[in-house]
Every structure is written in structure tokens, then in C-alpha cells.
Nucleic acid binder design. Structure first.
Length: 516
RNA sequence: GGGCGCGUAGCUCAAUUGGCAGAGCAACUGACUCUUAAUCAGUAGGUUGUAGGUUCGAUUCCUACCGCGCUCACCA
């Protein structure tokens, strides 16, 4: 029998003994007067005399994180909301049955304690318990108290244990919650209304990515989990919802990595009668405000760096390639080099000669090559908040072109900590232009690009009813949470990141094993 | 998918050149009415990820597989 099973049985037995003492094994509720944090903030600086005259009677509940028995008395630390308070249980004070109960408690059990506050000889604020109430048993042992749970896989798989043992993990998710709260408050304050659009879509559009496929039985139709809410939100601007936003999950069938999880949360919003510049400014404010709300300031730690959320740089994609051009790759490209297929090819060859080769396909549109070049040359340098604007039309099928340069669009992205965290543009609202862009994407698809956009006839029909000029933005909430909590993998800001299923002896597994 | 690394008690980790598989915490028994990584005395806990190979002998070396991590590729 494995040790875990032995402990499980042992503790079940203790649970029976606890019942025999007249305690409910799984009681319905416990009335408390204070939470542990409330007691700590209210009484931590009160000297012992003030606690004794008059006595402060309290009832608290919490999980036992440390317990020490010394003959006919003992101590324990209860944890609630990530904070700990000590209780003192003396046989004289709780009676024989109360003390029997104390002796049957294990690390991880939930108990209620009623008594009065005092200070121990060493000065620690403690509850002198007069009545102990059993609340719930921990049948499986918690990890070791000193080192805690460090196995990365177990931390993700058993996040509940991770949250009990590691207070900093709890902090990260409290901050993430504050972040989402801040984003909502900002959007609401700027007159946006929150909506929810389909997660299951007949055509997965609004981004360049491979979707997950699912199936509806009654309608007998395949559906895609959305890769973006974009096309639905823009339909709503056609319908007269001039300022809309959605904070929700997107699903992309891609590899996993330190900044990639197949399901991730985005804030996406659209503002009618605004262009990419307007929403660029708005997004910068939004994020600066979020940094303040989450961390209390505009400077945050990011590994070796300090991010300054009040100080943003802006440059065009072409400027960025020139600015970050590696010295050993020879002469910096000129603006004119981005104009033709041949000149771009020459630039790529110069770069490839001294660097890890960027994938280069001569048959792909030149704009796509430039975008790849940008990623290879500049992205790693973009640590401080930076807005890169003007993207190639070839990689921006939903953005308006620049009036003077049709190969370039009114689109921008925000980079921080070498990550792309936001993307915005002047929304393309000309249905005929949109049809041509979709057709161009279909050619890319035919060329073998599985991620190129599909034709969406209903979307074009919607645009044909007249969509107001609008600026739209998507903000990666997980990545922003990473940046604001100094987390260097996206799994640390997602409570239950995608993992391979745990090995178990289910019927199917057994069958698989037999087949092999 | 490629490369690198890791896998030893429930948890955190040791084990000399290939020579009896160990410690702390957790657990169990006992002592102890102000402890706090409580202390003291004792007990139990392992097919060293799996399968094979080399060897008198494998935690250690080799091969394959499984799992995990990092990284590259793929990826707005």
C-alpha cells in the first residue's frame, strides 16, 4: 500500500474518532466574527495589556498549516486568505473532549476556533481557544512545510495545493484579478459597453491562426472555437453599438511556449468614428492605468529590467528594422529598400548572411517577408513599452490602408518584454475592398498557408449595410498579467494551463496498452 | 517535430571510480500546559520512471520507451 493510501486510511479513521467525540465530520457552516487578515490588521500593534482589559472575544476559521503538541497544551497556525494566525489550545481551557479533538487534528485540516486574543511570551498575537470546532479533514498530506511544492508539473496540475502552499502564487492571481477589474473599469468609464459574442463559430475569422474544430450533434455541423471575436464585434458597430468591448477567451491550435497557451484571454474593443491613432492613445492610457491599479506605480520589475509604463516609444515597422539593424549585417537598409520585391530580397540576404536564417519564401507577398524580417531584427530588443505602427497590407487583411501608401496599413502593435501584447488598427469597412482582401487570403490558403483568412460572406454583407469608420484593438490579458507580475511563463498566470492528461488506469488506457 | 537536461521515500534533496540506498521534513508510538522549521526517545516508509543490455556486481555505464522542464522550429 502506498504511503498516501496509508495516510488516507489513517486520517479517515481519525475522522471517525472525531465524530465519536460529538463533532460533525462535515459540518454545514461556521459563524465567525473576524477573518484572519482582519484580526491581523486590527490587533497586530496592540500591546498585551490592551488585549486583556477588556478581553477581545473572536471566532475564526482557517486551515491548519502548523501544529505543535506539548503534553496537555499545544499551538497551531491557521491560514486564511494567505495569512496566518496562531491559536493556543490548553486542556484546562477546552476541556477533555476539546483536547481530544486537538490531538486528532492534522496539517491541512480546517477548524474553527473561538476564544480571546492574547500575546505569548514571545509576543506573538494568539487566540486563547475556549472552544474548538472541527470543520473539514485533509485526508491527503500537504507537501513539506519548509520547501513547499516546487515540482513545476505538480504545481500546474494540482493548482489547489500550489495555492495553499505558495503565497506568491496566490498574489499573482489576485493581481490578475485586479488587472481584469482595471481594464473593465477603464472601458466602462470611457463609454464602452461589454458584450459577449460567439465562442463557437461556423467560420473562425478575425485573426491569422489555426482553429480547434468541434461538432454540434443536432445541427450536425462542424463548428470552430473562435480565434478572435473581431468580426462579430465589428458587426455590432454596424448595428449601432458604437463602443463595444469583450474580455474573453480565444482558442488557437498552436504550439505551447513561454508566451503561448492554446486558450488565452483577450480584451478586444471597437470605437466608432475613431482611427488607429485614437485607439493607440487610448490603449496606452488603458495599460498605464492598469499598471498603476495592479502594482501601485508605473515602474515594474521584469527580470533584470525595470519597465517604465509611463514612458513609451513609438516607431514605424520600417524604422524599427533600420534602427535595430545588426551592425555586422552591414549597411542599414534605406526606406526605399522596402518598396520592391528585389530590394527586400537583398536586405533579407544581407541579414541571413550573418544571422539565424529567417524563413524566406520568394513566392510569398513581399509584405509578409518584411513582417518576418521585423520580428527577426527588432522583436528581441523591444523590452520597454513600444508602439510599432504601419504594418504591411499583406499581413493585415482587416486593416485600412494608408491613403498615400496602399502597401501599408494604419495598424500598430504594442511590444513589451519582447512580447506582442496589443494590436490595433483603423478597421477596414469598405465591403468591396474587404472582399478583395479575403480573395487575396484565399490565394495564400491555396498556396498552402493554412492560417490565411477564409471568406466570410455574412461579414461582407454586414459591411455592405455600412459600418462606421472605427478603430479596433486587442490586448493580450495573460501577457499583460505576466509583465505586471514579473512572471516569465504564461503558465504562471493561467490557473489551469493546458497539460498532457495525467497517466491513469482508465479502461481506455488499458485497451490501448493491450493493443500495443 | 529537432536539440539539451532531469526522473531516487509522501515532499525537498544526498549517495566518492560501478561496491550494503541515505538525511531533513511529513507519518506512527511515547514524554512534555507559552511553542513557533518546538524539543527528546523510538518505529515504519524504496521494484532508484519503465523495459532491455554490459558487468561478479548498476541509482551510477549503454539502448529504447514513458513523463516533465528548457530551447529551437511552428505560431497576430
Amino acid at each position: 500500500m502506498a504511503l498516501d493510501d496509508k495516510i488516507y486510511e489513517l486520517r479517515r479513521d481519525k475522522l471517525k474518532q472525531i465524530e465519536a467525540l460529538g463533532q460533525e465530520s462535515y459540518p454545514r457552516k461556521y459563524d465567525f466574527t473576524h477573518t484572519i487578515p482582519q484580526i491581523l490588521t486590527g490587533y497586530s500593534d496592540k500591546p498585551a495589556e490592551q488585549l486583556e482589559n477588556p478581553r477581545v472575544n473572536v471566532r475564526i476559521a482557517g486551515r491548519i498549516m502548523a501544529i505543535r503538541l506539548m503534553g496537555k497544551a499545544g499551538f497551531a497556525h491557521l491560514q486564511q486568505d494567505g495569512q496566518r494566525l496562531q491559536i493556543y489550545v490548553k486542556k484546562d481551557a477546552v476541556g477533555d473532549k476539546g483536547f481530544e479533538l486537538y490531538k486528532l487534528l492534522d496539517l491541512g485540516d480546517h477548524v474553527g476556533a473561538s476564544g480571546y486574543l492574547f500575546r505569548t511570551r514571545t509576543g506573538e498575537l494568539t487566540i486563547h481557544v475556549e472552544e474548538l470546532t472541527f470543520l473539514s479533514k485533509d485526508l491527503l498530506p500537504l507537501p513539506e512545510k519548509w520547501h513547499g511544492l516546487t515540482d513545476v508539473e505538480l504545481r500546474y496540475r494540482q493548482r489547489y495545493v500550489d495555492l495553499v502552499m505558495n503565497p506568491e502564487v496566490r498574489e499573482v492571481f489576485l493581481k490578475r484579478s485586479k488587472l481584469v477589474q482595471s481594464l473593465r473599469r477603464f472601458m466602462d468609464a470611457h463609454g464602452f459597453i461589454e458584450v459577449e459574442t460567439p465562442m463557437m463559430q461556423p467560420i473562425a475569422g478575425g485573426a491569422v491562426a489555426r482553429p480547434f474544430v468541434t461538432h454540434h450533434n443536432t445541427l450536425d455541423m462542424d463548428l470552430f472555437l473562435r480565434i478572435a471575436p473581431e468580426l462579430y464585434l465589428k458587426r455590432l458597430t454596424v448595428g449601432g453599438l458604437d463602443r463595444v468591448y469583450e474580455i474573453n477567451r480565444n482558442f488557437r491550435n498552436e504550439g505551447l511556449g513561454w508566451r503561448w497557451n492554446p486558450e488565452f484571454t483577450m480584451l478586444e474593443f471597437y470605437q466608432a468614428y475613431a482611427n488607429y491613432r485614437d485607439v493607440m492613445d487610448l490603449t496606452q492610457q488603458l495599460i498605464e492605468q492598469a499598471a498603476k491599479d495592479v502594482t501601485g506605480g508605473t515602474k515594474t520589475k521584469w527580470g533584470e529590467h525595470e519597465l517604465d509604463w509611463a514612458n513609451w516609444r513609438r516607431m514605424t515597422m520600417r524604422e524599427a528594422i533600420i534602427h535595430y539593424w545588426p551592425e555586422k549585417a552591414g549597411a542599414k537598409p534605406q526606406m526605399s529598400d522596402f518598396a520592391t520585391h528585389d530590394s527586400v530580397q537583398a536586405v533579407v540576404q544581407r541579414f541571413n548572411a550573418v544571422h539565424t536564417h529567417i524563413a524566406y519564401d520568394p513566392s510569398e507577398p513581399v509584405g509578409k517577408t518584411i513582417a518576418n524580417l521585423f520580428e527577426a531584427v527588432a522583436e528581441e530588443h523591444l523590452i520597454q513599452p513600444t508602439i510599432i505602427y504601419e504594418f504591411p497590407t499583406a499581413v493585415s487583411p482587416l486593416s485600412k490602408q494608408k491613403p498615400d501608401e496602399p502597401d501599408w496599413t494604419e495598424r500598430w502593435e504594442i511590444f513589451v518584454g519582447q512580447m506582442e501584447i496589443a494590436n490595433g488598427f483603423s478597421e477596414l469597412n469598405d465591403p468591396e475592398d474587404q472582399r478583395r482582401r479575403f480573395e487575396q487570403q484565399l490565394k495564400e490558403r491555396a498556396r498552402g498557408d493554412e492560417e490565411a483568412h477564409q471568406m466570410d460572406e455574412d461579414y461582407i454583407r454586414a459591411l455592405s449595410y455600412g459600418m462606421p469608420p472605427a478603430g479596433g484593438v486587442g490586448v493580450g490579458v495573460d501577457r499583460l498579467a505576466m509583465l505586471l507580475t514579473d512572471s516569465h511563463t504564461i503558465r504562471d498566470v493561467i490557473l489551469f494551463p493546458l497539460l498532457r492528461p495525467e497517466k491513469s488506469s482508465t479502461v481506455e488506457d488499458t485497451k490501448d496498452a493491450e493493443e500495443k
